[in-house]
Design a binder for these strands. Sequence first.
DNA 1: ATAAATTAGTTACAGATGTAACGATTATAC
DNA 2: GTATAATCGTTACATCTGTAACTAATTTAT
Lengths: 152, 152
Amino acid sequence: MENSELLKLEEFLPYRLSVLSNTVSRGISAAYVDRFGLSIREWRIIAVLGRFPGLSAADIVKRTEMDKVAVSRAVARLIGDGRLERSLSDADKRRSVLVLSGEGKRLYDQISPMAKNYEERLLKCLGSEDQDRLSDILDNLQKQAIALRPSS
Amino acid sequence: MENSELLKLEEFLPYRLSVLSNTVSRGISAAYVDRFGLSIREWRIIAVLGRFPGLSAADIVKRTEMDKVAVSRAVARLIGDGRLERSLSDADKRRSVLVLSGEGKRLYDQISPMAKNYEERLLKCLGSEDQDRLSDILDNLQKQAIALRPSS
DNA sequence: ATAAATTAGTTACAGATGTAACGATTATAC
DNA sequence: GTATAATCGTTACATCTGTAACTAATTTAT
């Protein structure tokens, strides 16, 4: 018989979250992002700028939970690929002002509905009550995970 | 007023899963894994071998959802650090037989309870009903995410 | 019995990532 | 007003990661 004290990886919440998140991210990449030559991070930046044009890199950091170096690199590539345009803030010459280019907007308009559709199909396995419950649960877990961080 | 058609990243399930999983993984790393000089992947291998001694690398792949290359590399490092011991299967000389060394067992015995404790504190933000519900929901989402994979 | 196909695991290479250090600009303190 | 500190973003470096190619052992087919 098995010792019930042993940690069972397949029931361990952090592990399950990691596996699920990876499966989902890969699914999205394979379905919608790879074929446009976008990384997940680039796609996230497109997504926030599609909704909030003119954000600075630091604003994107706050909105995406990405590291500032990761944002810097992804933005540099997006600009290089003609998907973003950057100018400098008049008020603060350190701050960038980022907007989607025409090409970037087209990407956003194309990928956005696909992403929503993916989410819809993913959530289809849950009843609407569970969908709502999941949302609350994720909020609570996120807050708790932050509270458990050593730095907190 | 805001266009409700726009994709809101902060409500987008794949994004929320990714952020939560990262926050949790980092929390665990910072709290229990970093200070033993283990990566998350090394820790996972320790965890499965603590419960199932004698697995092969391929068995670990199946049990951890890790890539075989990632397993190969993590196992090599664990052996180099004296935390694992490897022998070859008699029946099939390609297969490795992996077991924790004394040092590996001590790590397992030390980290396992800490990991469980972390999970417990994380889940404390949910009622017991929500905890059960979450488990079911994650199972369903995982199956659905696999079903939505292009390769499926 | 032998050739072809499959499996286990490693290696090689390119690209991604995290951390720390950095230059430039702005804010704060005195 | 000047020195100090904080902020914005980039660069450098080491490490990690994924994909594909590879060797060795085993299985399958004939």
